[in-house]
Amino acid sequence: MSLVSKIDKPILIGLGFIVLILAVGTVYTLSTQGTAVFLSPNYLMQQLHVGAFLGITAAGMMMVILLGHIDLSVPWTLAAGAMLATAIGGPLGALTCIGVGLTVGLVNGLGVAFLRVPSMIFTLGVNTVLLGLMVMLTGGHAPQSAATDLMLFLGRDRTLGIPHSVIVWALVSLTLVFVLTRTPLGRYMYAIGNQEAAAYLSGVRTRLVIVAAFVMCSLCAVIAGLALGGYSARAYQAMGDAYLLPSIAAVVLGGTNILGGQGRYAGTVVGALIIVLLQSVLSVMQMEEAFRQVIYGAVIIGMLLIYSRGRIVNA
């Protein structure tokens, strides 16, 4: 088997696009400032550092998208986890944060798998409830919102120049790749995404698999929340809002089918990198916010037109 056929088309094109972004950016900086800032290891490490938060969130999102579901509760799961971690503080805060992830994942999973409410609307409701709970928490009085030592360690600090958030991202990635490719759970997830009825008839306990996927998604969200809280040195209410649509976009840019059942984890990493690099390069090029949004949208459509077109329905 050749290397090209092993790495599938979306990932290859995605990697090519990353090179293209960096090349265009470098041409721009060379002509205006005479430096190739985009190729410096410092800059690239900084992008990985920032990209890790989106990468971790998108990794979780991919788990539910593989099943053909979606999790709209990610923004406030992330924010709630981080806000509780800072409000309680210390190791107990971090444990609470993980507990929030587990609980939200279980509730989402139960609603989607056992009550069979469409995930789109159930997770939307859970998101609103979490928002409400956090407004209650911060409304009457202002709780502690400065990041704890653990969060700073995860989100801000570096060892030998490598940001810890990148290491966390790598660990999360390794775990998920292991789950997806080396465990029955991973196989079942792909099976359910393709045809839930078939998986059920083959004896897969599909409802438990769905719950597991939602738990993984929420856990990723709170881990990203911990790290992001550390990076920005505090937890605040709308901190997760900027991660919902980009994380879905990252998963889809990586070649995962939004209807489920198809997609490789490496694609999601590439997708997250594309989004982070695109935003960063455009802002260094002093592109206005308006044009950045337009280019961002156009890139998603353009890339999907190349490799992610659906089949024509004709039977």
Binding site: L245, F291, A298, G310
Partner: peptide
């Protein structure tokens, strides 16, 4: 004609419309 799933196509065009609004 692009045969892209509606949710993703509109996620992208949503960003474009917001960009135009900002413009």
């Amino acid at each position: 004609y692009g045969r892209i799933q509606p949710i993703i196509a509109t996620l992208a065009t949503g960003a474009i419309y917001l960009g135009l609004a900002l413009f």
